[in-house]
Nucleic acid binder design. Structure first.
Length: 923
DNA sequence: AGTGTTGCAACAT
DNA sequence: GCCTAATGTTGCAACACT
């Protein structure tokens, strides 16, 4: 046996054996079940693979223990001080006022199948295939059959098991019904998966206090499943006494739907428990399916609570520190979302099983685990979690993968690869996504998984483009094992690093490209959604030919006609289908687009007017050949507790020359009056349907409105502004003025300070070393300041020389932002016409630039635009690909990626949903 | 040489 | 005989820049 391989049967059992950490699985004959599982699985390649993983994990544990043995008392003391300090900080920031609810449908897929096929109700059944089960009903769980178990093993455990194939369309439809109920309690609820969601019902509860009883009264329609469940309880209960008492018994807060109650009414109270009981009642009435819920002051606790009284039950942790700590004390760490098999084992090796033990060993944990990880542990031990439900997390990647019987033939492998690329391309195009990284995932017959990624210069979304990269990665792997065949059991293709609106210059259909009739270089038949968004968001993109003498200076007014050198980068152009685009677009996309613009830290915005009428001038310059990015951003970050109309001005000068105009309008719900910003004339158009808005744009494009709107003088704009403001409430008007004032009073220093508030995107390389604490740990881990400390520092860009130069350049072009303007009158020079503007009002100035820019765009358009040089970057990608075999290539220091904002609602659980952080260990 | 950035692999649900 | 599929986050090391 090799060193560190102490894995015996007991150890491997933790991997392959029954995991009864699931509702309905208590009191089973685990030994008997495990014996069957082990007999079935032993000797298989899967088993061998699990053994290998187990050995690796054991080695990790041993390494950790060896390090632990070397830790000195002095180190522990020092660490203890740090832990206590952070704990005190965290304690101070504890928030108990939100009422967070986590709802989880009971055995969802199985319940849906049982509902639709009554014969299944009293049989042990599972949903999935012989290869893998997704879930099982409570009958099947009595036999040890559970989710993530292969069907063939389940059949050994329960020969009568009925396996029903998955039917996602059906589950999606039911999920939609459930979500409609959720939306009544929190319109911003966060779906975690088809059967799970997190809600913040704080506001609902406030309103509910004033509701008359009639609004809390529901008529009971008898739900058959309840009767059946009761029947089931009797039946199953008769079979075994070990059935969990909560399994089929209504818990105190559970659904009031009882047999014989048909036609009666049920009145729900105003407490959180009553509101959640009502929600579950309504779900059951609507779908005849039951749900369980957890109510707590944060998401982490709510998630744990929802499991507490499963099925068909609920549990609440009162919003008091003591209640939280009492709940946490004896809670096994494995119950916490984010602590998996590996972490559980690592902690168990340290004698940590419960959350209170976790708290007791924090000093040691801080020495053994990375900063992120131990911070996460500390939060758990204090019962802290996220109190803010963020629905805006966007999709980061998209992939498709397939498992199959052994495939060793290279031709077949390439053909499958192409097939996967085809499917993925379709999915990407459906969601309008393009990404720069293509990853190939391979699993060989020994269950060894390997992923190989390749980053392209150009974002891709077509089958050919993806396949071009994927097939090379595959070839590299085939060559690697040659002359032996590559024996695969799984292949997957993923595309990630989605480009943001700002980033997609080389491919983005500018309004010019969009209007130009030309063939689509990307061979993508359909315009992507992002493209639609970019048009809808009125994003006009021009790219200037690289021209050093006009770079940067163009914004200072030193160059007389800087924009004359701009041309469109519209290699990917579309048919003039604007009508179709607009018709297809949903108002939400406009909103999303605005948010994208707002959160991008690589844009310069003179001033967004307000949240409902947001017009911003964005200037970024990039010089692709220059390695250092000259970017400086000034951000007025939205305070989380304030309203959503963040006053914000970002300035940046980086090195590709790019000007884009973006304007966005916050929209209302579909059939309400909506306000759109015309991408041509920038007028605010109020309309109930997009068609009339489209018509308006058509008119603008045809020049009719263009002619009508010849004046660019401030008066007209003021009138328009006033007109608009008149339609908003006074508060918003006030807000605009406030923002202008805020901008004007911002001195350079204050801007830099505010810049610190810019949220840090996650970086594996911390920015600031904590010398005070790093001394004794640095050899093993890089130690850095805690997040809270980081925020008090000036961001690295702000401190860099190039950053300050860039800032000044920016500042000189938009003096409004850089000097204490309440003391001086700014001179605003239009970067398009180079004329000094006789106004200090940024709104007016923006309007002027909008118009100038627009004139330029239309002029360019009329003069027929040369095709973009996108092919250059494609050639580069090909060259890069050809040299990529077997070894990863590092890219040069290109500008950091801006926050990726693509549309998506994550339907997966992520640790981050419950905390901020992950659990990767150092060992 | 020190530090920031990027890509990959591992680990999580 | 047979052990899924999709997606997110982080640590670490290699690379690039100053």
């Amino acid at each position: 046996m090799e060193p560190g391989c102490s894995t015996g049967q007991d150890s491997i059992l933790s991997r392959v054996a029954l995991n009864d950490n699931k509702a309905g699985m208590q009191g089973l004959d685990k030994d008997k079940i495990n014996k069957i599982i082990l007999e079935t699985t032993k000797g298989s390649r899967f088993y061998e693979s699990e053994l290998k993983k187990e050995r690796q994990l054991n080695q990790r544990v041993e390494k950790m223990m060896r390090y632990k043995a070397k830790v000195t008392e002095q180190q522990i003391q020092k660490a203890q001080a740090e832990v206590e300090k952070l704990a005190a900080d965290l304690e101070r920031s504890r928030k108990l006022e939100r009422v967070i609810v986590h709802v989880d449908m009971d055995a969802f897929y199985a319940a849906v199948e049982m509902r639709d096929c009554p014969e299944l109700k009293n049989k042990p059944m599972a949903v999935g295939s012989m290869s893998m089960l997704s879930t099982s009903n409570y009958h099947a769980r009595r036999y040890g059959v559970r989710a993530a178990m292969p069907g063939f093993i389940a059949k050994k455990l329960c020969p009568d098991l009925v396996i029903v194939p998955l039917n996602f369309d059906k589950y999606r439809a039911v999920s939609e019904q459930v979500r409609e109920v959720f939306a009544d309690y929190d319109p911003h609820f966060l779906p975690m998966s088809l059967d799970e969601a997190c809600l913040d019902i704080t506001e609902h509860l406030e309103q509910r206090q004033h509701w008359p009883e009639s609004m809390r009264t529901y008529q009971i329609c008898e739900v058959k499943t309840t009767a059946d469940v009761n029947e089931l309880q009797t039946t199953v209960g008769a079979e075994t006494d070990t059935l969990s008492p909560v399994l089929f018994e209504d818990s105190p807060g559970s659904s009031p739907t009882v047999p014989g109650a048909d036609g009666k009414v049920e009145v729900f109270g105003t407490t959180p428990e009553e509101a959640v009981r009502e929600m579950r009642f309504r779900i059951e009435q609507r779908t005849t399916l039951t749900a369980s819920a957890g109510i707590a002051p944060n998401m982490m606790l709510a998630k744990v609570c929802s499991d507490k009284n499963k099925p068909n039950g609920q549990y609440r942790i009162l919003p008091e520190r003591k209640a939280v700590m009492d709940f946490i004390q004896e809670l096994p760490v494995r119950k916490i979302s984010g602590i998996g098999k590996v972490t559980e084992k690592m902690l168990a090796a340290l004698g940590i099983i419960t959350c209170s033990q976790l708290g007791q060993q924090m000093a040691m944990l801080s020495l053994l685990f990375s900063e992120t990880t131990w911070h996460h542990f500390l939060q758990i031990s204090l019962g802290l979690g996220s109190t803010h439900i963020d629905r805006d997390s966007e999709r980061k990647s998209m992939s498709t993968e397939r498992t199959f019987a052994e495939m060793s033939n290279a031709d077949e492998q390439y053909s499958l690869c192409r097939e996967l690329c085809h499917d993925l391309a379709k999915d990407l195009q459906r969601e309008g996504l393009k990404g720069k990284t293509v990853t190939l995932k391979l699993k060989n017959v020994n269950f060894e998984v390997k992923t190989k990624a390749f980053s392209l210069q150009c974002a891709v979304c077509t089958e050919e483009e993806i396949f071009a990269a994927a097939k090379d990665l595959l070839k590299a792997e085939i060559d690697n094992v040659s002359p032996l065949p590559l024996r695969l059991r799984l292949m997957g293709v993923r595309v990630s690093s989605f480009i943001s609106v700002d980033d997609k210059q080389p491919q983005q259909k500018s309004i010019v490209g969009f209007l130009k009739i030309a063939s689509d270089c990307s061979s993508s038949a359909q315009p992507s959604k992002s493209e639609m968004v970019s048009v809808l968001g009125s994003s006009v993109s021009l790219t200037r030919e690289q021209c050093p003498e006009t770079r940067s200076a163009s914004f200072t007014g030193e160059t007389s006609k800087p924009f004359s050198k701009w041309r469109t980068e519209s290699g990917c152009t579309a048919e003039p289908q604007q009508q179709t685009f607009f018709q297809k677009a949903h108002a939400k996309r406009l909103q999303k687009q605005y948010e994208q613009e707002e959160t991008s830290d690589k844009i310069f915005k003179c001033l967004p007017a307000d949240s409902t009428n947001n017009s911003a001038f964005i200037v970024t310059t990039h010089k692709p050949t220059v390695k250092t990015e000259e970017t400086q951003t000034c951000t007025w970050k939205r305070h989380p507790d304030t309203d959503d109309t963040a006053a914000k001005a970002d300035s940046s000068l980086s090195t590709t020359n790019k000007v884009s105009y973006a304007s966005q309008t916050k929209t209302q719900s579909a059939n309400m009056l909506q306000c759109f910003t015309c991408p041509v004339c920038f007028n605010q158009i109020e309309t109930k349907n997009l068609s009339s808005f489209n018509q308006h744009i058509d008119e603008c494009l045809s020049g009719e409105l263009d002619n009508k709107r010849t004046s660019m003088d401030g008066c007209q704009d003021v009138c328009q502004e006033e007109k608009l403001l008149g339609k908003q409430d006074e508060a918003k008007k006030e807000h605009i003025h406030h923002k202008v004032t805020d901008l004007n009073s911002g001195s350079r220093t204050s801007i830099l300070k505010r810049n610190n508030e810019r949220p840090y995107t996650s970086s594996s390389t911390p920015l600031f070393e904590n010398s005070a604490h790093s001394d004794f740990r640095t050899p093993f881990f890089k130690r850095f300041k805690s997040t809270s400390e980081k925020s008090s520092f000036v961001p690295h860009e702000a401190m860099s020389d190039s950053g300050s130069v860039s800032f000044q350049q920016t500042a000189s072009s938009v003096e409004v932002i850089s000097e204490p303007l309440h003391k001086m009158v700014p001179i605003l020079t239009c970067p398009v016409c180079s004329q000094a503007q006789d106004t200090d009002d940024l709104i007016l100035f923006n309007h002027h630039v909008d118009m100038c820019l627009n004139q330029e765009v239309l002029l360019e358009f009329r003069e027929a635009v040369p095709p973009m040089a996108q092919s250059d970057s494609k050639v580069k990608d090909l060259e890069k690909l050809s040299t990529a075999r077997g070894k990863s290539k590092r890219r040069g220091s290109s500008p950091p990626p801006p926050p990726k904002k693509t549309k998506a609602i994550s339907t997966r659980h992520t640790i981050d949903k419950f905390f901020k952080g992950n659990c990767n260990q150092k060992f």
